[in-house]
Design a protein around this nucleic acid. Structure first.
Lengths: 170, 170
DNA sequence: CACGATTTGGTTGTGCACAACCGACTGTTA
DNA sequence: TAACAGTCGGTTGTGCACAACCAAATCGTG
């Protein structure tokens, strides 16, 4: 296996070098499978959550709200990695469905606090068996689950660092 | 950003018996991190692909078209797990951008075949270094990459089987 | 041939996601 | 006090994703 770095091979180069082909294939497969996994999760959750009247991102928001009692839009955005352009209409739909209420904080009128309604709290009970159903669908035991979780976590933080690096260059 | 507040708060060394709370936490974290990883990939690709005038799903389509020379809409939908409601407008945008052409197959007038234009083929050269840039950003070596790939793959097929099972019950 | 079922892609409607921009509020400084 | 920069949500525009529905082409059987 030659390990030479291929640069300065540009205009007129008809076929890319072989290891570049290999890298392209690897990257392609990782993209594909990550997208596919994300879509598969969504497909599995969709009918289950439809019984509760929630979409998958709405479910993620409810999980955060259930756990913390109340959350500002800013906090939700940070932990779920969503910006206000996504959260604002989503929260309005959740409010319209009767699961949460949104109120300006008295302390800081810029901030909007989201907390569950009675109905939203009651929903938690009905959602109680979802984790078990989903986890059993993955076919993973607790250890494999943990490994996948930490693998994805480390990839994510690596990607975050890389994105910040690119950001810094501008 | 990159606050990582409530993640990894309680991933201590011990593993207590997996009660319902524990399961909920695991499920929550797996959902979150998968979504987060998907989003992080998207964020990293976005500026890189913007130089080429592509979005991430458009890039996936171009990868498939580059590899096979030409693909029907049906084939694209199968390999990328997208339906026509997503692909049709996406392919129109790619055609408008001048990267592909769409033509009814002479053999079967129902089928639409997508193939790259000259400009689309030329784009492949300009996209040549993307895999290396992305892969180095992940901070994974070839073996870790393969492990993650196969882990995601097995999860995806387990989820597919589970979804089919649910489907069959209706 | 005619009839009906299937395949294939397209359209419409709803919702998620981000970038770019805006307006209101807050804390600091002059 | 007035001016200012920074924070926080919201709005608009573009694109992805799916469900539900539709039209044309094809295939199968009588």
């Amino acid at each position: 296996m030659s390990d030479r770095t291929d640069e300065a091979r540009e205009s007129g180069g008809e076929s890319p070098p072989a290891d570049s082909e290999q890298l392209l294939r690897l990257e392609r497969q990782l993209c594909f499978v990550l997208h596919a996994t994300s879509r598969a999760f969504d497909t599995l959750y969709r009918p289950v959550l439809a019984e509760l009247g929630l979409t998958y991102p709405q479910y993620l928001v409810m999980l955060a709200v259930w756990e913390h009692g109340e959350r500002s839009v800013k906090e939700l955005g940070q932990s779920l990695r969503l910006d206000s352009g996504t959260l604002s209409p989503l929260l309005k739909r959740l409010e319209k469905a009767g699961f949460v209420r949104r109120e300006r904080s008295p302390d800081d009128e810029r901030s909007v606090v989201v907390h569950p309604t009675e109905e939203g709290i009651a929903l938690r009970e009905r959602a109680g068996d979802i984790p078990r159903r989903i986890l059993s669908a993955t076919g993973l035991d607790e250890q494999q689950l943990g490994e996948l979780h930490s693998a994805l976590n480390s990839v994510t933080s690596a990607l975050d660092r890389a994105a910040e690096e690119i950001d810094r260059q501008d």
